[in-house]
Design a protein around this nucleic acid. Structure first.
Length: 852
RNA sequence: GGGCGCGUAGCUCAGUGGGAGAGCGCUCGCUUCACACGCGAGAGGUCGCUGGUUCGAAACCAGCCGUGCCCACCA
């Protein structure tokens, strides 16, 4: 350390993350530490594919937690000398990105249709070029050690190749097909969306009961509906086959009010005889259940509501052109007028909404592309059942399996412009359909001109191949050979089905191997009040703000410390605890670095406390490592905290200060050794402050980011030293407490004698006692310490203190006696437990006798 | 309707069969030569309720109450 550096260390009494983080991060990037060569095998390397954030996105707490966990593991494995790759990139996020640019256009008074498809897509690319890297920059603020040189985008050139290859192969296998089918139509984004993008919410509607007259009879069938406007598309009325009330009507017809259409009365198991009158109107065009029933019975599928949410000509000229809401009003009015409305009552039920746009889903029949999932699901189920892919915590494994076993076809087409345009071409003259990986020259059959499918693929279709497409698949790249399968994936549970399940299926189908070994489903960080963190609710907490105020290490520590398997509320206190820790790390390091003699770091124990701290250090290394390896980040960081704060700072540093100030070589070497190992241990979770401190460490040969990760040295475990020092600490605390309660001034030195074995030297010093007192009368006992009378002591306060202690001891003795007096306990409890209890009882009795 | 969680100190949370813990907050005392983002000492809990298993339950089982999430096509 030169004079300038030493001066900086001396003068900086407070750790300043803002001054450190940018500088240190640049050093890492310039050092190329985050960019591994594509060498070695996946078994020896360590790789993680980041859950690609949306290009439109800003870093939120979920990313920050997720990133802190991934970075901890990537850094730990990099320090272990493994080739560690953290793949970074962003997702084109079809609907989200398209909406952002459409909003921009709207400010200019234009719509995407004014621009036309090509110009609009061009415009989105421009937007992406300008704003799309924001979130990547934010990951850097967090300290994420991603490979920024290998950044990918789900719409970049190579990625499109991979997506088209996948589509074509699934099509050739017969999994992908086109069909007219009931889909979730999102009127907000004007597109079909998948089941997984639908969110059910409780809504209060009105349940209308409507009389449908039975043809050639004076009977009526009363049906109930919350959407009377859909009756215009009714093509049947159904009853349960076992329902005796209607048995004679099955096969007959009734007449649809307002329209006059003859509706067959059919029998279907799906109808619940208990609900309402037990008669169900069937609208195959606008209700998923009715659609199923309609297909089963070969009913006509009338479309009376169009994709624009307005009634179609099919609904009759009286209603055509109205919005669904207007039509509902008109239909109800007309029914009332005709005396067909039997009842209206408030009705609470759950209704599907678009997760994307928030609008109420309009179930529609439309021509879409689907992917059959059964065949893909089989091996993906087996992989998880056999723990080839391990999902933790355990309950999520079952959730995954349950969902996979019930998997349904996936609607993969979206009526958007921004995304992977589906690689299908149609030849209108000869009605040929061509699926190809690249644009065909013309129709092979008739040579005619081709027209590409207008729809794009669901964004999740491209994210499903993320772990291997990012490594260059379908080309056989060195990256793919070195880093696939990846090692680890961490994710929020909300995308377990949307993303994780699909990656497993695609990984097995295409590269032919699972995409990752371990999946860890992390907790959700809620707002401080327990609500969801969300921008629209105004409950979001910006990780960048936290980093600006407290530093990235503080936020990382806080998030890891508060994370667990259950959802937790964001805790400012935990981030502040992390901030305090960075500051204290800095200051404890200053104490060591500025005072240590010039020696090589090495364990050189002279006293019991030296053996103790070395033992505690190695045990902490073992334990923290084990917890990181099992994704128990919360306990990992809190245990490291507790070793550092309590063992090292509160006790060891206080104990050895005099030796350190004396320039003793042994303690200097030991402290430098402890500091080196501690910095390395903490680096994966608190990378900035540890790297910065390391830059002042005399043993530094290179950056800490590639320093060896410590391996616990079990030969330093020392039960005897730990017991002796822990006893000394306990005695010190009792003496301090005794002083406090007896009202002794903090600075006063007391005199005492030791009865029996001398405790470690530090006990007297840290409790401000002199154990060589002579001549005076003993006034109290604290363990083996006989406190002697002196002018510092107030006799009344001492007496009160003694009374209190006697009271405590009597309680303890009584408790232990009661327990040992229980025959069941003595007979059935393990011997060690009983022996331990006997030992306690003896000690309490002895101390009580002393005080009597 | 099915499934999964949670209910422990004022707050946020650990703790899964042998004497209730952490961080923050609170009280008292410290300008002790690394750190007041600090140091020392404290106060504070019938572990949601009821029953059961056990020598022993915050922990295991059952029921109840409260609360959160996921899945599901009863109009």
């Amino acid at each position: 350390m030169n004079d300038e550096r030493r001066q900086k260390l001396e003068q900086t009494t407070r750790y300043d993350p803002a001054e450190v983080e940018g500088r240190v991060f640049s050093e890492w990037v310039e050092g190329g530490y985050f960019h591994p060569e594509a060498e070695g095998s996946p078994e020896h390397n360590f790789s993680v594919a980041i859950p690609p954030p949306n290009v439109t996105g800003a870093l939120h707490m979920g990313h920050a937690l997720n990133g802190s966990m991934q970075d901890a593991l990537v850094r730990m494995n990099r320090m272990r000398g493994r080739n560690a790759l953290w793949i970074l990139g962003t997702d084109h996020a079809g609907i989200a990105t398209q909406s952002v640019v459409e909003k921009e256009l709207k400010k200019e008074g234009k719509s995407r249709h004014d621009l036309g498809r090509e110009a609009f897509v061009e415009r989105v690319w421009e937007w992406k070029a300008e704003y799309g890297s924001r979130i990547v920059e934010q990951y850097k603020r967090l300290g994420a050690s991603c490979d920024y040189e290998r950044e990918r985008f789900t719409l970049d050139e190579g990625y499109v190749t991979a997506v088209y290859r996948v589509f074509k192969q699934l099509y050739d296998k017969g999994y992908i097909y086109r069909d007219n089918y009931m889909v979730n139509w999102d009127p907000g984004s004007h597109s079909a969306i998948s089941d997984l993008e639908v969110e059910n919410k409780e809504v209060e509607d009105t349940l209308y009961s409507i009389d449908y007259p039975v043809a050639d009879s004076d009977r009526v069938l009363t049906v109930a509906t919350v959407r009377p406007e859909t009756m215009l598309g009714d093509t049947a009325v159904a009853v349960n086959p076992s329902d005796e009330r209607y048995g004679d009507l099955v096969g007959q017809f009734c007449e649809l009010p307002l329209v006059g259409r003859r509706l067959p009365i059919i029998a279907d198991e799906h109808v619940d005889p208990e609900f309402g009158t037990g008669a169900l109107k069937i609208t195959p065009g606008h209700d998923p259940n009715d659609f199923e029933i309609g297909r089963k019975h070969g009913l006509e599928e009338l479309v009376v509501i169009g994709p624009d949410g307005r009634l179609t000509a099919e609904a009759g000229e009286r209603f055509a052109g109205l919005t669904a809401a207007e039509a509902q009003e008109a239909v109800v009015a007309a029914l009332r007028e005709e005396g067909r409305l039997r009842a209206e009552e408030p009705y609470v039920h759950s209704v599907p909404f678009s997760h994307r746009s928030g609008e109420r889903i309009e179930p529609l029949i439309s021509l879409q592309w689907f992917c059959r999932m059964d065949e893909l699901a089989g091996p993906a189920i087996a992989a998880v059942e056999s723990d080839e892919v391990r999902i933790a915590p355990g309950q999520w494994k079952r959730v995954y399996l349950d969902w996979m076993r019930e998997i349904r076809p996936w609607c993969v087409s979206r009526q958007l412009w921004w995304g992977h345009r589906i690689p299908v071409w149609y030849c209108d003259p000869c009605e040929e359909t061509i699926v190809a990986e690249s644009t065909p020259q013309g129709c092979g059959a008739c040579g005619g001109e081709l027209r590409q499918e207008e729809d794009v693929l669901d964004t999740w279709f491209s994210s499903a191949i993320w772990p291997f497409a990012t490594l260059g698949w379908p080309a056989e790249t060195p990256e793919l050979r070195a880093f696939y399968p990846t090692s680890f994936l961490t994710t929020a549970r909300e995308i377990l089905f949307l993303w994780v399940a699909r990656m497993i299926m695609m990984g097995i189908e295409f590269p032919g191997a699972i995409p990752f070994r371990d999946v860890y489903v992390h907790s959700v960080i809620q707002a401080r009040d327990g609500r969801r963190m969300s921008k629209s609710l105004g409950t979001g907490i910006d990780p960048l703000d936290e980093i600006s105020v407290h530093g990235a290490d503080a936020l990382r520590f806080g998030l890891l410390a508060m994370s667990s398997t259950q959802d937790v509320r964001f805790s400012d206190a935990k981030v502040e605890q992390g901030r305090d820790m960075t500051n204290k790390l800095w200051n404890a390091s200053r104490l060591i670095l500025l005072n240590a003699a010039e020696v090589e770091p090495a364990p050189r124990p002279l006293h019991v406390e030296d053996r103790w701290i070395l033992s505690r250090l190695e045990r902490t290394i073992a334990s923290v490592t084990e917890k990181l390896e099992t994704y128990d980040f919360a306990h990992a960081v809190q245990e490291a905290y507790s070793f550092f704060w309590r063992d090292l700072c509160d006790w060891y540093l206080e104990i050895v200060k005099p030796r350190l100030y004396d320039g003793e070589e042994e303690v200097s070497a030991t402290l430098l050794h402890v500091l080196e190992r501690l910095l390395a241990l903490l680096h994966p979770t608190m990378p900035f402050v540890t790297e910065e401190i390391w830059s002042f460490h005399p043993a530094r040969r290179g950056h800490l980011v590639v320093h060896a990760f410590p391996v616990a040295d079990q030969s330093r475990f020392d039960d005897a030293a730990e017991a002796d020092v822990e006893d000394g600490i306990a005695l010190t605390q009792r003496l301090r407490a005794w002083r406090d309660l007896a009202g002794v001034p903090a600075g006063a030195m007391l005199v005492a004698l030791i009865d029996g074995v001398e405790p470690p030297e530090f006990v007297a010093r840290l409790s401000r006692f002199e154990f060589d007192g002579v001549g005076a009368e003993p006034v109290a006992s604290v363990g083996p310490v006989r406190v002697l009378a002196s002018e510092q002591l107030d006799a009344a306060a001492v007496a009160e203190r003694l009374d209190k202690r006697r009271e405590e001891l009597r309680d303890e003795v009584e408790r232990a006696e009661r327990k040992l007096g229980n025959e069941g306990f003595v007979a059935k409890a393990p011997v060690e437990v009983v022996e331990e209890e006997r030992g306690k009882l003896e000690r309490y009795r002895a101390e009580l006798a002393e005080l009597a």
